[in-house]
Amino acid sequence: MDNPVTELDARFSDPGVQPTAWEETQGVLENAQLTWLTTVRADGRPHVTPLVAVWLEGALHFCTGPEEQKAVNLEANPNVVLTTGDSTWNKGLDVMVEGPARRVTDQRTLEKLAEAWRTKWTGQWQYEVGEEAFTNDIGGTALVFAVQPTKVLAFGKGTYSHTRYTPR
């Protein structure tokens, strides 16, 4: 999401506060060490799980094993919410990304993402690129997904603000 439409929701913001700049919100997405993914099970119940995600080229990316609950859920319903931020009440910025999760299978994009995972966590997350997915050193496969945001919300704390970003 480049240069999104930015709107402050005054109902949930301190008087006189300005909307959070997109660059600050994007920085939270780029630097987050942990993100929470919410998917929907086939029977309508929510499923929430923490994971590591990478912001690259305007989308938030995550991966999962093909048999994991989140992968099963995405087969039936690709719509997700990803959240990250600070668990304190009076400081920081919490960010929510909403949109459909789409499989990433392009070799070049997978290679860029594998490098992004290695770089972001100083080598702790090592993926190789296999046939339309990541692989790891113990023979596992990880499906890779991209979420192009349909909406992003940023919740400023301390000085409270509620900023909404939508694609142009």
Rank of each mutant, 00 (worst) to 15 (best):
D86T: 07
E115I: 02
V81K: 11
T119R: 14
N77K: 15
A101P: 14
T109P: 00
N136L: 06
E98Y: 00
Q107L: 10
L93I: 10
K112W: 07
M96P: 03
F134T: 05
Q124C: 06
A76C: 08
A116R: 09
V81Y: 02
L74K: 06
K120E: 06
V72L: 09
V81S: 15
T84P: 10
P78V: 11
L113Q: 08
P78I: 13
T88W: 13
L93E: 12
T88S: 13
L110C: 02
D86A: 03
V104K: 02
R102T: 15
V129G: 07
D137K: 08
D106S: 00
E98L: 05
E128I: 00
G85R: 13
E115L: 10
V80A: 07
V97I: 12
T119M: 13
A101K: 06
R118Y: 03
K112H: 12
V72Y: 04
V95H: 09
K91L: 00
T105Q: 15
T109Y: 07
Q107F: 13
G130W: 01
Q124T: 07
T83V: 08
N90T: 06
G123C: 09
L82C: 12
R108Y: 11
Y127P: 03
N77V: 08
Q126D: 12
D106Y: 11
R102C: 09
N79P: 00
A133M: 05
A133V: 05
V81H: 03
E131Q: 06
T88F: 11
T119L: 15
P100A: 14
P78R: 11
A101Q: 06
E98W: 01
Q126R: 14
R102S: 05
T122C: 00
G85I: 11
L74A: 02
N136P: 10
Q107S: 13
D86C: 10
A114C: 06
P100F: 13
A116N: 10
W121N: 06
T83P: 06
K91A: 07
N79W: 12
Q126K: 11
P100T: 11
L93A: 00
V95S: 02
W117E: 06
E128T: 03
T84N: 07
K120C: 04
T88M: 09
E98G: 04
N77Q: 12
T105N: 09
V97C: 05
E128N: 13
G92T: 11
T122W: 02
